[in-house]
């Protein structure tokens, strides 16, 4: 499968960075110490902790969803706009069409899953490179959201709908609880079940996986649909959390999940998109963004921080890849004189 080639080499090289499996955790500690001593009265507060947890919850769920696609070796660049369209649809159904909130949520999740199915159709059946197919789908989804909202904000949703995102048992935002429960489930499936092992195998080397008896196409299709469904859950929770959205809300759920997933492949279990690494990466990004925002108050901090982190991680991986290629070329030349068979 062609579409598998890019993310495969990428993860392998992210793993080869050997940044240290726990370097992310050390960085988190360092950031806490820096911001804690720089702006103790604003940073070291329960409000800040709650805010970071609350901010990261939706991103965690989107990133976990993305991880399913990446683990299977395909990119899904439509996640951001899929969240956006999902939120627009969910809020419209509840506030404009007065649907029962549960029905609206189920409908939204199914719609997002169906978009994952559309991606799968384009990538696996038609055979378009996943990068291109999902980029196109994402653009179409943004157009759909703009069409539905007519360039207005939709919402607000009734308080009865918002309640299940605002609940804070023991002062812990319930969103982060949802996110961590989903993370636990994803960790179990990916790292401890046959499904997860085969999904990783598909992403690591689709051809070898097929020869090892894995129905790779099914796993890619399943992974893309799962990504859609997970994104649907994120869209529903986002609707409940903020109550009124514009069509552009999805823009902030593309770069951060990708940055987090790529960083995740350098942490805890290097070389593999893993849930532990993802949580480390997301909290690292979240704390960095929050701390810098508190220091400067600038609105461009999150975009800059996510972008720079992404470029650093992937850029180092590319440089490393070049070095390994050069080395293997040299090995190939010296291997040429080995072996002995008279009739190749």
């Amino acid at each position: 499968m062609r579409s598998g080639a890019k993310p495969t080499s990428l993860t392998a090289n992210l793993g080869r960075l050997r940044l240290g499996r726990y370097s992310g955790i050390f960085l988190i500690v360092a950031l806490v110490v820096i911001f804690g001593s720089w702006i103790p009265q604003t940073f070291l507060t329960a409000t800040t902790v709650q805010a970071i947890a609350q901010n990261e919850a939706i991103t965690i769920i989107v990133s976990l969803s993305l991880m399913a696609a990446l683990a299977a070796g395909v990119f899904d660049l439509s996640i951001g706009q899929n969240v956006g369209l999902g939120a627009v649809v969910c809020i419209s159904l509840v506030s404009t069409y007065h649907w029962n909130p549960v029905a609206a949520c189920v409908a939204t999740i199914l719609m997002c899953g169906a978009i994952g199915g559309l991606n799968a159709l384009l990538i696996v059946v038609v055979g378009i490179d996943s990068f291109i197919a999902t980029l196109g789908v994402g653009s179409a989804l943004l157009a759909a959201a703009e069409f539905l909202t007519n360039d207005q904000f939709v919402g607000p949703t009734p308080a009865s709908f918002q309640i299940f995102a605002e609940w804070q048992p023991l002062g812990i935002p319930v969103l982060i609880i949802y996110a961590l429960v989903l993370a636990l489930a994803a960790w179990y499936v990916l790292e401890h079940t046959p499904v997860g092992r085969r999904l990783y195998a598909t992403g690591a080397n689709a051809d070898a996986a097929r020869l090892a008896g894995i129905a790779t196409k099914r796993y890619v299709v399943g992974a893309l649909i799962l990504t859609g469904l997970g994104v649907g859950v994120a869209a529903v929770l986002l609707s409940a959390e903020i109550g009124s959205v514009s069509a552009q809300v999805g823009n902030s759920y593309l770069l951060a999940p990708f940055a987090a997933c790529f960083l995740a492949a350098t942490q805890i279990k290097p070389g593999r998109y893993n849930v532990g690494g993802l949580l480390v990466a997301l909290f690292l990004l979240g704390i960095g963004v929050k701390g810098l925002s508190l220091v400067t108050g600038a609105v461009w901090i999150p975009d800059l921080f996510n972008g720079v982190a992404l470029i650093l991680a992937v850029g180092l991986a590319v440089i490393l890849q070049r070095r390994t290629q050069r080395r293997s070329k040299r090995q190939a030349i010296s291997a040429e004189i080995g072996g002995s068979n008279p009739m190749e």
Binding site: T11, A12, G15, Y188, V189, H192, T193, P194, V195, R197, R198, A201, A204, N205, D207, A208, A209, L211, A212, G213, I214, G271
Partner: peptide, 28 residues
């Protein structure tokens, strides 16, 4: 390119064609 997963452990390479499980969601 085709025969093995170079970035994987010996254990994972050995078991991948025939994982031991009764249900697909079972813990390995």
């Amino acid at each position: 390119r085709l025969g093995a997963f170079l970035g994987w452990s010996v254990r994972e390479n050995l078991t991948i064609p025939k994982l031991n499980y009764a249900r697909i969601t079972q813990r390995l």
